[in-house]
């Protein structure tokens, strides 16, 4: 930042006052953090099950569009029916997109990194097209859908977006599933040792389908909450990068579902304050990306080196039976 000619302290001051200092700033941070937390959670479920789900972006955006469509196109329902339906649309389409990559992996053995990259490209292009054509707001030139009806808008609690609390609850639920349930143990075992999982009678195929499907569902829910609670309509440009920040957050949280909560708040705060940092201290948005990359690097480097060392020396460190 200094090199760029901005005053770093001003920029940090701006970051904290806007991101965490005021109630509105805080609310904005939590609003930003919500889809990030869910996409981080989707990546985490993959990581724990031995999958690198980098298709979260596509899953999230399809959920966002599906929820946005349901939010304006289905009419005449009360909020307690309409809102859940719109959310379910998001969940379903997110899950579908994730499930396709899972099925390709389970039944055809194609690596999920390849399929999710491909599916990302397809889905993002398709969603752009739909938002600019079939589902475009009448009379609009921008690629965006009509505004979501009030009956499908997520209400705020004390000015804070309620989706946030739901996301925290979900992160805790995922943690609990991994910690305490047989389903979580199945996924975890597959993630750690596929051969041992097969030996133990756990279907690796089913686990891949579940992990990709559930991950996609959570990402789709993240997109739906963003559309219905924060933006108010589907507009492709508003969602860029959410899925990829999810990878950062999952790694920050060391693949622990609870770890995505602080990770998402931190990244959400920085992302939320990036425009005011630009305004107050003249920090270019690219610099914000740079800071995020540095955070990721610093956090994962010791983790990586430890892992490398443990795999190299681990075999030699084991000693005889007498101790």
């Amino acid at each position: 930042m200094f090199l760029q000619g901005a005053q770093p302290m001003d920029a940090y001051g701006s970051l904290f006052s806007h991101g965490f200092g005021s109630w509105e700033g805080f609310a904005k941070t939590l609003g930003k953090a919500t889809p990030l937390m869910l996409s981080g959670l989707a990546v985490t479920i993959g990581l724990r099950s031995g999958l690198f789900n980098i298709g979260v972006q596509g899953q999230l955006v399809s959920g966002a569009l599906a929820a946005g469509w349901a939010g304006y196109a289905i009419q005449g329902l009360p909020i307690y029916i309409h809102l859940p339906i719109a959310l379910l649309f998001g969940i379903f389409f997110g899950a579908l997109v994730g499930w396709i990559a899972g099925a390709l992996k389970a039944y055809r053995g194609i690596h999920e990194v390849i399929t999710t990259i491909m599916i990302n490209s397809i889905v993002l292009a398709l969603v752009d097209y739909l938002a600019g054509h079939n589902f475009q707001e009448p009379g609009q030139t921008l690629a965006r859908t009509s505004a979501v009806l009030p009956s499908a808008t997520i209400p705020k609690i004390f000015g804070l977006p309620s989706g946030f609390f739901f996301a925290v609850l979900l992160a805790w639920a995922v943690w609990w599933v991994f910690q305490r349930t047989t389903s979580g143990f199945r996924l975890d075992t597959v993630g750690r040792n596929k051969n041992a999982a097969w030996y133990a009678g756990i279907s690796v195929k089913r686990s891949v389908l579940i992990a990709m499907g559930v991950g996609g569902a959570i990402a789709g829910l993240g997109g739906a909450i963003e559309t219905l609670g924060v933006i108010g309509r589907f507009e492709p440009t508003f969602n860029t990068g959410l899925g990829f920040d999810g990878i950062t957050i999952a790694l920050l949280g060391r693949a622990n579902p609870l770890g995505v909560i602080p990770g998402a708040i931190l990244i959400g705060g920085i992302r939320g304050a990036s425009s005011s940092m630009q305004f107050d201290a003249g920090v270019a948005p690219e610099i914000v990306d740079l800071i995020l990359a540095l955070i990721l690097f610093c956090v994962t480097a010791p983790f990586l080196s430890k892992w490398l060392r443990s795999t190299q020396v681990g075999a030699k460190v084991t000693s005889g039976w007498s101790n």
């Binding site: 075992t189 750690r192 051969n195 041992a196 097969w198 030996y199 133990a200 009678g201």
Partner: peptide
């Protein structure tokens, strides 16, 4: 199993979990 590291154990799991690896459910 013939290969304990490959099939018989999940080496990153605790002994507790490994002792129920195929009976956990």
């Amino acid at each position: 199993p013939e290969d304990r590291e490959k099939h018989g154990l999940v080496t990153t799991y605790s002994i507790e979990d490994n002792l129920v690896l195929n009976q956990f459910d």
